[in-house]
């Protein structure tokens, strides 16, 4: 291919280029800086236009139907002192099996409803919260998942963190504080740490080299 395939680049950027043309066009793009730049601009421009998609109200029950199709199925956050599960009829059996006879109400098929149960459960728990500075600016996010005696903490920071590295620590529900280690946001994103504890994190702090807390996430 010697000429610049500008028409094909438009189709490629919009997802309409026939499969039997793609390899030839991409091969040309790899060897032609001007076409590579044009393709980059076309793709980026199309992405920009997507941001102004006129919204349309979906049919009633849309959220329920989506959540009913998620695979793997979601876990749920647990309010203090009680265990709550969200699930379809199919997940009730799993609750009974895992919880060792915890009483749950019957669920209508394909309908997500809260299921309150008393007593211990080994169900996985997870929560997500923004990492915010003292001025309430969101600079990233933190999440945890507790399951089978282990808690995994995940921290992600948006580009632009002022310090090259941070010390991370978490305060657990049992009142203890655990140092998670040091992390450089530019190296590994997100940063994930697994703790050998059954106590859920209540907060996570990122502490700058100066010793000041730069950002914190609070779980409810």
């Amino acid at each position: 291919m010697t000429d610049h395939p500008e028409g094909d680049l438009v189709d490629l950027a919009l997802g309409h280029l026939a499969a039997d043309r793609q390899s030839a066009v991409l091969e040309h793009v790899d060897s032609c800086p001007s076409c590579a730049e044009l393709l980059r601009q076309l793709v980026a421009g199309a992405d920009d236009v997507l941001t102004i998609t006129p919204p349309v109200d979906p049919p009633a029950g849309f959220v329920d139907r989506v959540l009913g199709r998620l695979d793997p199925p979601p876990t749920a956050a647990l309010p203090a002192g009680r265990a709550v599960r969200w699930g379809r009829a199919a997940s009730v059996a799993a609750v009974l099996a895992v919880g060792g006879g915890v009483a749950v109400a019957t669920l209508a098929p394909h309908r997500l409803e809260p299921q309150w149960s008393a007593g211990p459960t080994t169900a996985a728990r997870s929560q997500t919260a923004d990492l915010r500075t003292k001025t309430a600016r969101t600079v990233g996010s933190a999440a945890f998942r507790s399951s089978e005696g282990r808690t995994t903490v995940s921290i992600d920071v948006l580009p632009g963190a002022p310090a090259p590295w941070y010390s991370c620590r978490t305060r657990l529900a049992d009142g203890t504080t655990v140092e998670l280690g040091s992390w450089s946001p530019g190296t590994t994103t997100p940063w994930t740490v697994t703790l050998p504890t059954t106590s859920d994190p209540r907060s996570i702090e990122l502490i700058a080299p100066s010793g000041a807390t730069w950002a914190a996430a609070t779980f409810h």
């Binding site: 979601p74 749920a76 969200w86 996985a124 997500t128 996010s141 999440a143 995940s154 948006l158």
Partner: peptide
């Protein structure tokens, strides 16, 4: 971004 991080952790509320 936080909601997606929550979904990665399989948080039903985030989803």
């Amino acid at each position: 971004d936080a909601l997606v991080a929550g979904m990665a952790m399989r948080d039903g509320d985030a989803a």
